[in-house]
Design a protein around this nucleic acid. Structure first.
Length: 500
RNA sequence: AGCGGGGUAGGGUAGUCUGGAGUGCCCGCCGGGCUCAUAACCCGGAGAUCGGUGGUUCAAAUCCACUCCCCGCUACCA
């Protein structure tokens, strides 16, 4: 059996999770579940990024110890992952996971051994009040945005990673080893590399990091820069270093699912670090867009931050998962609004999918005596052939990561079913031509079964319910194109409730 | 400023690489049908100078040039 190792990014925990991470969870999970029902052995890692100075500051503001603050917020991310149905196998909290700390140290030592880590003086604009370095672009009128004071130029010695050495090898790797999904992002990355890479700082003084984070091996006056340690979570999630058997079967990762804002770290820094450490490179990087809210960028100052857990409570897991994959384009930015969630749920889940399944199963249970058997197929055969083509098309789209296009195609099956049901009027046939009515319902029951299988990655709860109603065994994608010959059906409950 | 992405009916998208009647999908709107089904489903319709200008071509949403608007990244910041 083939292993498929997939990761989400690990968000940092200075605030509550927002709808953007929910999108990432759903996308990664749809891919993971699709692979699972394709017969692959899937392993999914997620977690939280905690060793950041920003967390120290946020904790201070909240009047908490950094450690407690991270643990509390991390629990919120875990809650979101659970509630949205993310089927993860490992959840790495970078501040408290002992394996993770070892991985960060190992990675450091390996890069150091390759001669890629060296000390360099760095000078920057430092605000004494914040105890932070600022970039010129972050200042407001040349002043610290927080304290309204002029920052001073301060010099500090840090460790640097010799990124400049890896430009050529990175370009080669992006050409041969690492698939960037979607393809359009690849040119963005290669252009950046071609412009020339500079070495980057991978440590902070203890003073600047306020003692939070993982100490540099062999130099307790410095802390490992958060990115250098965070990316290692993909390794620790796979079992490094405590379970090498697992690690060797999982690594290299098959796919990192990330947001467009962190492309550089994943597509440039990370592969370079791995090359330096002599570790194989991830096979693909899947890059999604950002979620806007009512057309606006999410921001605390606008006050439009959407709490995904609240949305899940209000609308349910599957409708939220459906909306995030159906209405938000997979690779571009997309908009979230409750109005749109409501419309998509009512017209597509209730009106199209839910209604088709319901009218079919209800009809079989109330008019056909609760069962239907294989029939000689006339026109129904044509419909099934058309649907089988869609099944193939969906599989092709899923393999390409076109999650949005695939769910649209899946929903077409339900539309076709509704039209077929309507055109053939089995409620009339039942009185005039029992065999013809049986054929129609036999076809529709099989369409329900195909739908139940195909929607599994997107809406696992609904999928399980449909398959249970029709007495189908656990989901296997390979069974989607064969007919189930006999159905025993009890009166079903409706799949989706209308949102008023 | 540089690099990248986007601008297609009221909203959202596909189509652009490999030009060929504005062709499709989802929602919304208007009209009709049907009644098995959650006022659901089915059919029909209105609605677009395909951001703008200029060019190549028998033919441009699609190719080329210029231009306007939106978004992201620009490195020690997740």
């Amino acid at each position: 059996m083939e292993d498929f190792y997939i990761t989400t990014a690990i968000p940092y925990v200075n605030a509550r999770p927002h709808i953007g991470f929910a999108l990432e969870c759903v996308q990664a999970d749809v891919i993971a579940r699709h692979r699972r029902i394709s017969g692959e052995r899937v392993y999914l890692t997620t977690g939280t990024d905690e060793n950041s100075l920003k967390n120290v500051i946020a904790a201070e503001k909240a009047g908490m110890k950094t450690k407690d603050f991270c643990a509390a917020n991390s629990a919120l991310f875990r809650e979101l992952a659970d509630r949205i149905g993310l089927s993860y196998d490992a959840f790495i909290e970078t501040a408290s996971d002992p394996d993770h700390r070892k991985v960060a140290e190992t990675l450091w030592r390996a890069c150091s051994k390759s001669g890629d880590i060296y000390m360099k003086k760095y000078s920057g604009l430092y605000c004494v009040g914040c105890e932070l370095f600022y970039k010129e672009s972050e200042l407001v009128g040349g002043l610290c945005p927080e304290h309204r004071t002029k920052p001073e130029i301060v010099e500090e010695e840090n460790y640097f990673f010799r990124l400049s050495k890896y430009g050529g090898r990175l370009l080669e790797a992006l050409d041969k080893e690492i698939t960037i999904i979607p393809d359009s992002r690849k040119s963005e990355i290669t252009n950046f590399i071609k412009e020339g890479l500079e070495d980057f700082s991978i440590s902070r003084s203890i003073k600047r990091s306020r003692g939070w984070g993982i100490p540099v091996p062999g130099d307790s006056s410095q802390t490992i820069y958060v990115w250098f340690d965070a990316l290692g979570a993909y390794l620790s999630g796979a079992g490094l270093p405590s379970d090498m058997k697992k690690f060797n079967s999982l690594w290299p990762a098959d796919m990192h699912v990330i947001g467009k804002g962190v492309v550089r770290f994943h597509a440039i820094y990370w592969p370079a670090m791995l090359m330096s450490a002599g570790i194989p490179l991830p096979k693909s990087i899947f890059i999604h867009g950002y979620v806007t809210v009512n057309g606006q960028k999410m921001s605390k100052s606008i006050g439009n931050v959407v709490d995904p857990v609240q949305m899940l409570e209000k609308y349910g897991m599957d409708p939220v998962r459906y909306y995030l994959t159906r209405s938000i384009s997979t690779f571009q930015d997309g908009d979230f609004s409750e109005k749109a969630v409501k419309e998509a749920t009512n017209s597509e889940l209730v009106g199209n999918l839910g209604n088709f399944v319901n009218r079919t199963l209800t009809f079989i249970s109330s008019v056909m005596g609760g069962s239907v058997d294989e029939q000689d197929l006339g026109e129904g055969k044509l419909l099934l052939d058309e649907v089988y083509k869609i099944v193939d098309e969906v599989e092709r789209l899923m393999r390409q990561g076109q999650l949005n296009a695939a769910i649209l195609r899946i929903m077409e099956i339900s539309s076709l079913g509704n039209r077929y049901f309507q055109d053939n009027e089995p409620w009339k046939l039942a009185k005039e031509d029992a065999a013809a009515a049986k054929e129609v319902l036999f076809v529709c029951a099989n369409l329900c079964r195909i739908l139940g299988i195909l929607i599994y990655p997107y809406m696992p709860e609904t999928s399980n319910r449909i398959l249970k109603y029709i007495g189908e065994e656990p989901t296997r994608l390979s069974g989607a194109k064969s007919l189930k010959k006999h159905f025993e059906i009890a009166a079903p409950n409706i799949l989706f409730r209308k949102i008023e």
